[in-house]
Structures are given as structure tokens and as C-alpha cells.
């Protein structure tokens, strides 16, 4: 090593700076060429194809986009619409909910606009648009598609952001929904949500978790393709699920594909415009089942009471042995409560 060092050192002293720059460029070019690289944006290489790219996936064209949609059960049974978290996540970790079809519910899963395996939309698609209203309109179109008679009851089951979206929908359609299960919505106003996020995603500046999430940003940077952005977003999920995390998740959990653009566009919209999903909730009289988890240190009964307060009739219940991702990690505790509530409301 010392030999190389001296040899190189004496040789380089006699070379002009312009030549040195050329040497650097050539070395870099050689390294790039010998590596026989694949294109990062190749469909299906780093992230699964979406419904518009893979025709085998179950989908529905709705409200000007194409959503990844699956249904279980008898179409004439009461509707149970499953609304995943995020924004920008998908319903893969909630698939156990399909068991509720055996209890006499027509269970509908969907990946929200720009999320999971649903079609990706460009940033321009969201700019100047009421992004939250877009999500509400998608849900309304989905319900209208599957709702076949006025006697068929409609229930919503939302987790995290999905529970917030369910509330936003109920707030605009208080007489259309027969009941809802809401699992740890961060907040029902933007102010509440910011407050919750500050506690749940507290930044530990010197932690492995933060560096595992952010170090990749010097490798994947400044590219606008969904394939790259969604792949990069996968690494951020390690932060909230890292050992010792605040929200009580024991590990990572499966997902199909993050929706990076819809996530950032929704957060930007909320940050700029805010939201309040509680303005009309006093008209919604059926009881809701409001769930919070034992191990989420950012939630607790006090926060559950505060968030659920605008609902005139709420039953608050604790899911033991789980953190925020309670439906995936504590299904056995979640299921009896969900069945009891839904059968009572059916």
C-alpha cells in the first residue's frame, strides 16, 4: 500500500490539474461501464407493478383513476370497506380482515389513489387540487359501486390515516354510514394530527434508526420516477418500526409498495391548508368502536378520549399486546371486538 502511495504521489505531482480531472472522470466512467447496470425505473425490478402495468391484478376504474381492489364474501351482505393507513401505504397488513366475510359481511379492500398497487399519478395531478377531498370522493365512488340496495348497511373499518379518512367521509355523509371501527386515528383535525406525529415520530438524532432511514437519500436523490421514489420510501418505514420505537410495533410488517408522491402531496396539502373532520360529526348518531393499543406510547386512553370526543356515541376499547399496527400484530385480540361490534350493528 505504501508502495502504491509513493508511486502515485510522485507521478501525480507532475500532472496538470486538468489532466487530473480527466483521470477522475475516466475512472468513474470505467466503474460505471464495467458494472453492467440495470435501469432503476424498469417496471417490476425494484417495486411491484401497479394495476395499470399488470392486468392480472384485480382493479377498478373509479373517479378518474385505477384502484387496486379486492372483495370477499357475499355481495348482498352488509358492506365493510377496509381503509388502510398512510397516506401512501397499502392494505396488505390488513388482509386478515377478510375473515369477517365469514361473519356475513361483504369485505372490500382497496389501495387508495396513488398508493400500494393502485395506479400512480404525477405530482401535477394533485397540484391545485383538494387532495383530502379527492380521497373522500374516491371512497364515495367505491361505496356507490358496491352498494346495491338501500337496505344494505355500510360499515367502515379504518386504521391510522384510514380511520381519519373514514371520519372525513362520515363528516360529509353522516346518514349514509351505519357504523365504523376506527383504530388509532392520529387526530381528526390537522392540529391534533401534528401533535400526535410530534410524539409518535420523535426524531432521535444520533440513532441507527434515523440513519437507516436517511442515509439512502444520498444514493437516491433528485429523481422523479415513481419506481425510485417508492423504493426509497420503503426505507423510511424502518424508522417507525425500529427497536425501541414509540408506537410499539415489534418489527416491520409486510407491504406491497409505498406511494411516495401521494404521501408527500397529502402532507404538503394538509400542512398548507389544514383540515377539520369534526364539523358535522354531531349528526352521526350510531355508536362507533374506537380502538387504541396498549404499547403505543404516543397514544393512550387520554388521547383516545380526546380524539373520539366529537363523536356523539363512541365505545373506546383497548387492544392488548400490540402497538399501532394492532390489526396485523394482535389480530386475535382485535377480531373478537370487531365481530362483537359489527354483529351488534348489523
Amino acid at each position: 500500500m505504501l508502495f502504491f502511495s509513493r508511486l502515485h504521489s510522485s507521478a501525480i505531482t507532475n500532472v496538470s490539474p486538468g489532466k487530473l480531472v480527466k483521470v477522475i472522470c475516466c475512472a468513474l466512467l470505467c466503474l460505471s461501464v464495467v458494472s453492467c447496470e440495470e435501469d432503476m425505473t424498469k417496471k417490476g425490478a425494484l417495486v411491484p407493478k401497479t394495476v395499470d402495468e399488470d392486468k392480472k391484478l384485480p382493479s377498478l376504474n373509479i373517479n378518474g383513476t385505477q384502484l387496486h381492489v379486492e372483495t370477499y364474501g357475499n355481495r348482498n351482505d352488509p358492506l365493510l370497506i377496509v381503509i388502510h393507513g398512510g397516506p401512501g401505504a397499502d392494505y396488505r397488513s390488513m388482509l386478515k380482515v377478510q375473515e369477517l366475510a365469514k361473519q356475513g359481511f361483504y369485505v372490500v379492500f382497496y389501495d387508495q389513489r396513488g398508493s400500494g398497487l393502485s395506479k400512480r399519478e404525477s405530482r401535477g395531478h394533485y397540484e391545485g387540487t383538494d387532495v383530502v377531498q379527492l380521497f373522500i370522493d374516491d371512497l364515495d365512488a367505491l361505496i356507490n359501486h358496491f352498494h346495491i340496495s338501500s337496505r344494505q348497511k355500510i360499515f367502515l373499518l379504518g386504521h391510522s390515516w384510514g380511520a381519519m379518512l373514514a371520519t372525513a367521509y362520515i363528516n360529509q355523509n353522516p346518514y349514509k354510514i351505519s357504523g365504523a371501527i376506527l383504530a388509532e386515528p392520529g387526530g381528526l383535525t390537522w392540529k391534533q394530527t401534528e401533535d400526535y406525529l410530534e410524539r409518535s415520530n420523535k426524531i432521535k438524532f444520533f440513532s441507527e434508526a434515523l440513519n437507516d432511514a436517511t442515509f439512502v437519500e444520498q444514493i437516491f436523490a433528485g429523481r422523479s420516477e415513481h419506481e425510485i421514489l417508492d423504493y426509497k420510501a420503503s426505507f423510511f418505514s424502518t424508522y417507525e418500526n425500529a427497536p425501541g420505537n414509540t408506537i410499539g410495533n415489534p418489527s416491520n410488517y409486510p407491504f406491497w409498495r409505498n406511494g411516495a408522491v401521494v404521501f408527500s402531496e397529502t402532507i404538503d396539502y394538509a400542512d398548507e391548508r389544514g383540515f377539520d373532520f369534526t364539523t358535522n360529526l354531531d349528526k352521526f348518531t350510531p355508536p362507533i368502536l374506537f380502538l387504541y393499543s396498549e404499547k403505543n406510547k404516543a397514544y393512550g386512553l387520554g388521547w383516545a378520549d380526546k380524539v373520539a370526543a366529537p363523536y356523539p356515541n363512541s365505545e373506546i376499547a383497548l387492544i392488548k399486546g400490540a402497538g399501532h399496527e394492532m390489526i396485523y400484530f394482535a389480530w386475535d385480540n382485535f377480531y373478537p371486538l370487531a365481530v362483537s361490534y359489527l354483529n351488534q350493528m348489523k
Partner: peptide
């Protein structure tokens, strides 16, 4: 495997 440029800052 090897992938091509993923951008820059």
C-alpha cells in the same frame, strides 16, 4: 444487482 444512476444532490 447493479443499477444505474439514481440521481444526485
Amino acid at each position: 444487482g447493479w443499477y444505474d444512476s439514481s440521481g444526485g444532490n
